[in-house]
Simulated assay, not measured.
Amino acid sequence: MSSIPPRRIAVLVSGSGTNLQALIDAQNTPSLPHAEIVLVFSNRKAAFGLTRASQAQPPISTGYLALQPYLKANPGKTRDDYDSEVAVRVLEARPDLIVLAGWMHVFGESFLERADQAKDGLGVPVINLHPALPGAFDGMNSIERAFEAFQKGEIKHSGAMVHRVIKDVDRGEPLIVREVQILHGDALDDFAKRLHSIEWQIIVEASKLVLDEVVPIPS
């Protein structure tokens, strides 16, 4: 197996990168075997996820491009142009899998089209971690919205999932779904910590699942 190139992962982050750290820790272990994170890309220059990448052993290549500075530097360009440029930069790393791990920007069709056309038309799968159950609390602030709904008696639990990315926000095919309990007496932070611990597990599990589909490890 040592002579076979490792399976390549690009991870997109916008914040602290705790989900990225779970992937860094799992690469080349039984949880995520024969895999290498080849790029960490952010839309925020101050994202600590970039620091995590540079401090990894060995260090992981990083990239950065923010929407508003891009539009300001390129008069006439659009959000779709930005999405396309991000795709170009990410795909230059030749990933077998793109993981959105706390990436706080909704991609339009131009990003997904470039990913679908990559690798001579075979495409590069794109997956996203979302801290809610399928069909519930799509989009931003889902943890806070779920906690508030629990307080109102509207739900009994929440959860987290990893899903395939399509143009409809958080509506792609779920790959792994886990329920997370909200306990009476919980503060928001208590629930959030419980949910994040599940996120760190399922982002690794889903990455392995998809890699095993697109680049199986020879027996």
Rank of each mutant, 00 (worst) to 15 (best):
M1F: 00
S3A: 00
S3T: 01
P5F: 03
P5Q: 03
P6S: 07
P6M: 04
R7I: 03
R8P: 04
V11H: 12
V11Q: 13
L12W: 08
S14Y: 12
S16C: 03
G17E: 10
T18G: 12
T18L: 10
T18P: 06
N19C: 11
A22S: 14
A22D: 06
A26G: 07
N28E: 12
T29D: 02
P30C: 02
S31I: 01
A35R: 00
I37R: 10
I37E: 05
V38T: 15
F41G: 11
K45F: 00
A46W: 01
A46R: 04
A46S: 15
F48P: 01
G49P: 11
G49S: 07
A53M: 01
Q55N: 15
Q55S: 15
A56H: 15
P59A: 14
P59I: 10
S61D: 13
S61G: 04
T62K: 08
T62M: 04
T62F: 06
G63R: 07
Y64H: 15
Y64S: 08
L65A: 01
A66K: 05
Q68V: 02
P69H: 03
Y70W: 00
L71M: 00
N74R: 00
P75W: 02
G76N: 03
K77T: 03
T78V: 00
D83G: 08
S84Q: 08
E85F: 00
V88G: 02
V88H: 07
V88A: 10
R89K: 15
A93E: 06
R94G: 01
P95K: 09
D96V: 06
D96L: 11
L97T: 09
L97E: 10
W103C: 13
M104H: 08
M104W: 06
F107W: 13
E109D: 14
F111K: 12
L112Y: 06
E113M: 12
R114F: 06
D116F: 09
Q117N: 14
K119T: 08
K119I: 08
K119M: 07
D120V: 01
G121M: 09
L122Y: 07
L122D: 13
P125R: 13
N128M: 12
L129C: 08
H130Y: 10
H130D: 11
P131G: 07
A132P: 10
A132F: 05
L133Q: 02
P134I: 13
P134T: 12
G135A: 04
G135N: 05
D138M: 13
N141E: 13
S142N: 07
I143A: 09
A146Y: 10
A146P: 06
E148M: 11
K152Y: 10
E154I: 11
I155A: 02
H157Q: 14
A160L: 00
A160D: 03
A160Y: 02
V162S: 11
R164V: 12
V177W: 02
R178K: 15
E179L: 04
V180W: 03
Q181D: 12
L183D: 04
G185T: 06
D190Y: 05
F191Q: 09
A192D: 10
K193L: 09
L195Y: 03
I198V: 15
I198C: 11
E199W: 12
E199D: 08
W200M: 11
I202H: 00
I202P: 00
I202V: 07
I202E: 00
I203M: 10
E205T: 04
S207V: 08
K208Q: 14
V210M: 11
E213Q: 15
V215S: 02
